[in-house]
Protein backbone atom coordinates (compact mmCIF):
# COMPACT_ATOMS: atom_id res chain seq x y z
CA UNK A 1 0.00 0.00 0.00
CA UNK A 2 1.30 3.45 -0.88
CA UNK A 3 1.60 6.09 1.88
CA UNK A 4 -1.18 8.09 0.23
CA UNK A 5 -3.38 4.99 0.12
CA UNK A 6 -2.63 4.26 3.75
CA UNK A 7 -3.55 7.78 4.82
CA UNK A 8 -6.78 7.55 2.80
CA UNK A 9 -7.65 4.24 4.43
CA UNK A 10 -6.97 5.57 7.91
CA UNK A 11 -9.03 8.67 7.16
CA UNK A 12 -11.88 6.50 5.98
CA UNK A 13 -11.74 4.35 9.08
CA UNK A 14 -11.65 7.45 11.29
CA UNK A 15 -14.72 8.81 9.58
CA UNK A 16 -16.53 5.58 10.36
CA UNK A 17 -15.97 6.15 14.07
CA UNK A 18 -18.17 9.20 13.87
CA UNK A 19 -21.26 7.04 14.48
CA UNK A 20 -20.38 7.19 18.15
CA UNK A 21 -19.91 10.94 18.23
CA UNK A 22 -22.95 11.76 16.19
CA UNK A 23 -25.27 9.52 18.12
CA UNK A 24 -23.98 10.89 21.43
CA UNK A 25 -24.16 14.52 20.32
CA UNK A 26 -27.72 14.06 19.12
CA UNK A 27 -28.67 12.91 22.61
CA UNK A 28 -27.78 15.75 24.97
CA UNK A 29 -29.84 13.98 27.62
CA UNK A 30 -27.54 11.01 27.49
CA UNK A 31 -24.50 13.24 27.90
CA UNK A 32 -25.99 15.01 30.89
CA UNK A 33 -26.87 11.72 32.53
CA UNK A 34 -23.36 10.42 31.92
CA UNK A 35 -21.91 13.55 33.52
CA UNK A 36 -24.16 13.23 36.55
CA UNK A 37 -23.44 9.53 36.87
CA UNK A 38 -19.68 9.90 36.64
CA UNK A 39 -19.64 12.96 38.89
CA UNK A 40 -21.61 11.37 41.68
CA UNK A 41 -19.73 8.08 41.42
CA UNK A 42 -16.39 9.88 41.70
CA UNK A 43 -17.59 11.97 44.61
CA UNK A 44 -18.98 9.03 46.58
CA UNK A 45 -15.94 6.88 45.89
CA UNK A 46 -13.60 9.62 47.09
CA UNK A 47 -15.72 10.13 50.25
CA UNK A 48 -15.84 6.41 50.97
CA UNK A 49 -12.11 5.82 50.67
CA UNK A 50 -11.20 8.98 52.59
CA UNK A 51 -13.50 7.84 55.39
CA UNK A 52 -11.95 4.37 55.44
CA UNK A 53 -8.56 5.95 56.07
CA UNK A 54 -9.81 8.14 58.94
CA UNK A 55 -7.97 6.04 61.53
CA UNK A 56 -5.18 4.42 59.54
CA UNK A 57 -2.12 5.60 57.71
CA UNK A 58 -1.42 2.59 55.54
CA UNK A 59 -3.67 -0.28 54.61
CA UNK A 60 -2.85 -3.15 52.25
CA UNK A 61 0.34 -1.30 51.38
CA UNK A 62 -1.59 1.74 50.15
CA UNK A 63 -1.54 5.18 51.70
CA UNK A 64 -4.69 7.27 51.66
CA UNK A 65 -3.87 9.29 48.55
CA UNK A 66 -2.89 6.09 46.72
CA UNK A 67 -6.10 4.26 47.63
CA UNK A 68 -8.33 7.22 46.77
CA UNK A 69 -6.41 7.85 43.55
CA UNK A 70 -6.71 4.17 42.52
CA UNK A 71 -10.42 3.97 43.32
CA UNK A 72 -11.32 7.23 41.60
CA UNK A 73 -9.27 6.46 38.52
CA UNK A 74 -10.95 3.06 38.37
CA UNK A 75 -14.34 4.77 38.26
CA UNK A 76 -13.16 7.08 35.49
CA UNK A 77 -11.48 4.35 33.50
CA UNK A 78 -14.59 2.21 33.35
CA UNK A 79 -15.88 4.89 30.94
CA UNK A 80 -13.31 3.68 28.46
CA UNK A 81 -14.89 0.39 27.61
CA UNK A 82 -16.94 0.03 24.44
CA UNK A 83 -20.15 1.93 25.12
CA UNK A 84 -22.70 -0.01 27.03
CA UNK A 85 -25.25 -0.26 24.30
CA UNK A 86 -25.94 -3.82 25.35
CA UNK A 87 -29.57 -3.81 24.45
CA UNK A 88 -29.54 -0.89 22.02
CA UNK A 89 -30.38 -1.63 18.39
CA UNK A 90 -26.77 -1.14 17.39
CA UNK A 91 -25.37 -3.76 19.76
CA UNK A 92 -23.92 -6.93 18.39
CA UNK A 93 -26.55 -8.84 20.30
CA UNK A 94 -29.37 -7.04 18.53
CA UNK A 95 -27.71 -7.30 15.14
CA UNK A 96 -27.51 -11.06 15.63
CA UNK A 97 -31.02 -11.41 16.96
CA UNK A 98 -32.65 -9.35 14.28
CA UNK A 99 -30.45 -10.61 11.49
CA UNK A 100 -29.21 -7.16 10.49
CA UNK A 101 -25.72 -8.61 10.98
CA UNK A 102 -26.06 -9.90 7.42
CA UNK A 103 -25.35 -6.42 6.07
CA UNK A 104 -21.94 -6.57 7.75
CA UNK A 105 -21.09 -9.32 5.30
CA UNK A 106 -22.20 -7.30 2.31
CA UNK A 107 -19.68 -4.51 2.70
CA UNK A 108 -16.13 -4.13 1.48
CA UNK A 109 -15.06 -3.76 5.11
CA UNK A 110 -14.70 -7.11 6.85
CA UNK A 111 -16.92 -7.51 9.94
CA UNK A 112 -13.97 -7.88 12.30
CA UNK A 113 -12.50 -4.60 11.16
CA UNK A 114 -15.82 -2.80 11.36
CA UNK A 115 -16.31 -4.10 14.90
CA UNK A 116 -12.86 -2.86 15.85
CA UNK A 117 -13.33 0.55 14.29
CA UNK A 118 -16.63 1.03 16.07
CA UNK A 119 -15.05 0.06 19.39
CA UNK A 120 -12.17 2.46 18.79
CA UNK A 121 -14.70 5.23 18.27
CA UNK A 122 -16.42 4.30 21.52
CA UNK A 123 -13.15 4.14 23.40
CA UNK A 124 -11.94 7.46 21.99
CA UNK A 125 -15.24 9.00 23.02
CA UNK A 126 -14.79 7.54 26.52
CA UNK A 127 -11.27 8.92 26.61
CA UNK A 128 -12.60 12.47 26.35
CA UNK A 129 -14.76 11.88 29.40
CA UNK A 130 -11.82 10.38 31.22
CA UNK A 131 -9.52 13.28 30.40
CA UNK A 132 -12.13 15.81 31.50
CA UNK A 133 -12.71 13.91 34.72
CA UNK A 134 -9.01 13.44 35.29
CA UNK A 135 -8.38 17.17 34.85
CA UNK A 136 -11.05 18.02 37.39
CA UNK A 137 -9.95 15.38 39.91
CA UNK A 138 -6.28 16.32 39.83
CA UNK A 139 -7.13 20.02 40.12
CA UNK A 140 -9.35 19.26 43.10
CA UNK A 141 -6.54 17.19 44.62
CA UNK A 142 -8.61 13.99 44.73
CA UNK A 143 -6.22 12.15 42.39
CA UNK A 144 -2.50 12.69 42.97
CA UNK A 145 -0.23 13.52 40.05
CA UNK A 146 2.12 10.68 39.12
CA UNK A 147 5.36 10.50 41.09
CA UNK A 148 8.71 10.28 39.35
CA UNK A 149 9.83 10.59 35.75
CA UNK A 150 8.97 7.06 34.53
CA UNK A 151 5.66 6.57 36.24
CA UNK A 152 3.50 8.35 33.66
CA UNK A 153 5.00 6.70 30.53
CA UNK A 154 4.89 3.30 32.23
CA UNK A 155 1.28 3.89 33.20
CA UNK A 156 0.31 4.94 29.67
CA UNK A 157 1.85 1.84 28.11
CA UNK A 158 0.22 -0.41 30.66
CA UNK A 159 -3.14 1.34 30.33
CA UNK A 160 -3.03 0.99 26.56
CA UNK A 161 -2.41 -2.75 26.81
CA UNK A 162 -5.17 -2.91 29.40
CA UNK A 163 -7.58 -1.29 26.95
CA UNK A 164 -6.61 -3.76 24.24
CA UNK A 165 -7.51 -6.53 26.66
CA UNK A 166 -10.81 -4.84 27.55
CA UNK A 167 -11.69 -4.74 23.87
CA UNK A 168 -10.75 -8.35 23.29
CA UNK A 169 -12.74 -9.57 26.27
CA UNK A 170 -15.83 -7.70 25.13
CA UNK A 171 -15.28 -9.00 21.62
CA UNK A 172 -15.26 -12.59 22.84
CA UNK A 173 -18.61 -12.01 24.52
CA UNK A 174 -20.00 -10.52 21.33
CA UNK A 175 -18.73 -13.36 19.22
CA UNK A 176 -20.48 -15.82 21.52
CA UNK A 177 -23.64 -14.61 19.82
CA UNK A 178 -22.68 -16.56 16.73
CA UNK A 179 -23.07 -19.76 18.70
CA UNK A 180 -25.75 -18.90 21.21
CA UNK A 181 -27.54 -16.03 19.42
CA UNK A 182 -28.10 -14.30 22.76
CA UNK A 183 -25.30 -13.13 24.98
CA UNK A 184 -27.34 -10.94 27.31
CA UNK A 185 -26.92 -13.28 30.28
CA UNK A 186 -23.23 -13.63 29.60
CA UNK A 187 -22.98 -9.85 29.44
CA UNK A 188 -24.67 -9.37 32.79
CA UNK A 189 -22.46 -11.89 34.52
CA UNK A 190 -19.33 -10.65 32.85
CA UNK A 191 -19.89 -7.01 33.71
CA UNK A 192 -20.01 -7.96 37.33
CA UNK A 193 -17.11 -10.39 37.20
CA UNK A 194 -14.99 -8.05 35.15
CA UNK A 195 -15.61 -5.11 37.47
CA UNK A 196 -14.83 -7.20 40.51
CA UNK A 197 -11.72 -8.92 39.18
CA UNK A 198 -10.27 -5.88 37.46
CA UNK A 199 -10.32 -3.71 40.57
CA UNK A 200 -13.12 -1.39 39.46
CA UNK A 201 -15.15 -2.06 42.63
CA UNK A 202 -12.25 -1.86 45.06
CA UNK A 203 -8.44 -1.96 44.77
CA UNK A 204 -7.39 -5.59 44.49
CA UNK A 205 -4.74 -5.06 47.17
CA UNK A 206 -7.50 -5.33 49.79
CA UNK A 207 -8.57 -8.81 48.70
CA UNK A 208 -7.36 -11.98 50.48
CA UNK A 209 -4.24 -13.76 49.25
CA UNK A 210 -5.97 -16.80 47.75
CA UNK A 211 -8.15 -14.44 45.72
CA UNK A 212 -5.23 -12.47 44.30
CA UNK A 213 -3.35 -15.66 43.51
CA UNK A 214 -6.29 -17.10 41.62
CA UNK A 215 -6.89 -13.80 39.89
CA UNK A 216 -3.31 -13.57 38.69
CA UNK A 217 -4.04 -16.45 36.32
CA UNK A 218 -6.85 -14.47 34.70
CA UNK A 219 -6.65 -11.55 32.29
CA UNK A 220 -8.92 -9.21 34.26
CA UNK A 221 -6.39 -7.59 36.57
CA UNK A 222 -4.37 -6.61 33.52
CA UNK A 223 -7.16 -4.30 32.41
CA UNK A 224 -7.19 -1.88 35.37
CA UNK A 225 -5.40 -3.14 38.45
CA UNK A 226 -1.91 -3.22 36.94
CA UNK A 227 -1.96 0.20 35.24
CA UNK A 228 -3.60 1.90 38.22
CA UNK A 229 -1.16 0.35 40.67
CA UNK A 230 1.67 1.63 38.49
CA UNK A 231 0.10 5.08 38.49
CA UNK A 232 -0.24 5.38 42.27
CA UNK A 233 3.21 3.86 42.75
CA UNK A 234 2.09 0.64 44.47
CA UNK A 235 3.94 -1.26 41.75
CA UNK A 236 7.44 0.25 41.67
CA UNK A 237 8.86 1.23 38.30
CA UNK A 238 11.50 -1.52 38.37
CA UNK A 239 8.73 -4.17 38.42
CA UNK A 240 6.90 -2.59 35.50
CA UNK A 241 8.62 -4.52 32.65
CA UNK A 242 7.50 -7.84 34.14
CA UNK A 243 3.90 -6.70 34.56
CA UNK A 244 3.77 -5.18 31.11
CA UNK A 245 5.17 -8.40 29.64
CA UNK A 246 2.35 -10.34 31.29
CA UNK A 247 -0.15 -7.91 29.80
CA UNK A 248 1.43 -8.30 26.38
CA UNK A 249 1.17 -12.07 26.64
CA UNK A 250 -2.52 -11.75 27.44
CA UNK A 251 -3.00 -9.47 24.45
CA UNK A 252 -1.36 -12.01 22.20
CA UNK A 253 -3.29 -14.94 23.62
CA UNK A 254 -6.62 -13.17 23.40
CA UNK A 255 -5.80 -11.99 19.91
CA UNK A 256 -5.24 -15.59 18.85
CA UNK A 257 -8.52 -16.61 20.42
CA UNK A 258 -10.54 -13.78 18.91
CA UNK A 259 -8.99 -14.33 15.52
CA UNK A 260 -9.94 -17.98 15.56
CA UNK A 261 -13.44 -17.15 16.74
CA UNK A 262 -13.91 -14.58 13.99
CA UNK A 263 -12.73 -17.02 11.35
CA UNK A 264 -15.17 -19.64 12.52
CA UNK A 265 -17.97 -17.15 12.94
CA UNK A 266 -17.52 -15.72 9.48
CA UNK A 267 -17.66 -19.11 7.88
CA UNK A 268 -20.55 -20.51 9.89
CA UNK A 269 -22.82 -17.48 10.02
CA UNK A 270 -26.38 -18.56 9.41
CA UNK A 271 -28.49 -15.48 9.66
CA UNK A 272 -31.77 -16.27 11.25
CA UNK A 273 -35.17 -15.87 9.70
CA UNK A 274 -36.04 -14.07 6.55
Amino acid sequence: MTPVGAVATIGRLCRITRVTWLSELLEPGRMVSTAIQVGSQVFLTACLWTALYAHTEVSAGLQEHQAVGYAVLAVLASRLRPLSRDMAPDSFYRHMREGTILYWFLRPLPPHRYHLVRALGDQAHGLLWVLAGYGLCTTAGVVPLPDGRWTLPAFLVSMFLGQVIVYQLSLILDLLCFWTVANSNALHVSHFVQSLLSGAFAPLWFFPGWFTTANSFLPFQSTLHIPLSIYVGRIPVNRVPREVAVQAVWCLLLWLITRTLWKRAESRVAVQGG
Binding site: R12, R15, I16, R18, V19, L22, S23, L26, E27, A88, P89, D90, E98, G99, T100, L102, Y103, L106, R107, P108, L109, Y114, G274
Partner: peptide
Protein backbone atom coordinates in the same frame (compact mmCIF):
# COMPACT_ATOMS: atom_id res chain seq x y z
CA UNK B 1 -19.60 -6.47 -1.91
CA UNK B 2 -18.67 -3.83 -4.44
CA UNK B 3 -20.68 -5.61 -7.15
CA UNK B 4 -23.89 -6.14 -5.26
CA UNK B 5 -26.47 -4.25 -3.30
CA UNK B 6 -29.17 -5.81 -1.17
CA UNK B 7 -32.32 -4.83 0.65
CA UNK B 8 -33.92 -7.26 3.03
CA UNK B 9 -37.24 -5.54 3.51
CA UNK B 10 -37.84 -6.16 7.20
CA UNK B 11 -34.26 -5.33 8.11
CA UNK B 12 -32.47 -2.07 7.80
CA UNK B 13 -28.79 -1.52 7.29
CA UNK B 14 -29.09 2.08 8.44
CA UNK B 15 -27.75 3.28 11.78
CA UNK B 16 -30.68 3.52 14.13
CA UNK B 17 -29.55 6.59 16.07
CA UNK B 18 -28.41 8.67 13.11
CA UNK B 19 -30.43 10.72 10.66
CA UNK B 20 -30.89 8.74 7.46
CA UNK B 21 -28.56 11.01 5.53
CA UNK B 22 -25.70 10.46 7.96
CA UNK B 23 -26.16 6.73 7.47
CA UNK B 24 -25.77 7.26 3.75
CA UNK B 25 -22.58 9.23 4.37
CA UNK B 26 -21.31 6.33 6.49
CA UNK B 27 -21.94 3.96 3.61
CA UNK B 28 -20.27 6.36 1.22
CA UNK B 29 -17.13 6.07 3.37
CA UNK B 30 -17.38 2.33 3.76
Amino acid sequence: ARNIGAVFGQRSQLWWDLPARDSLVMLRDI
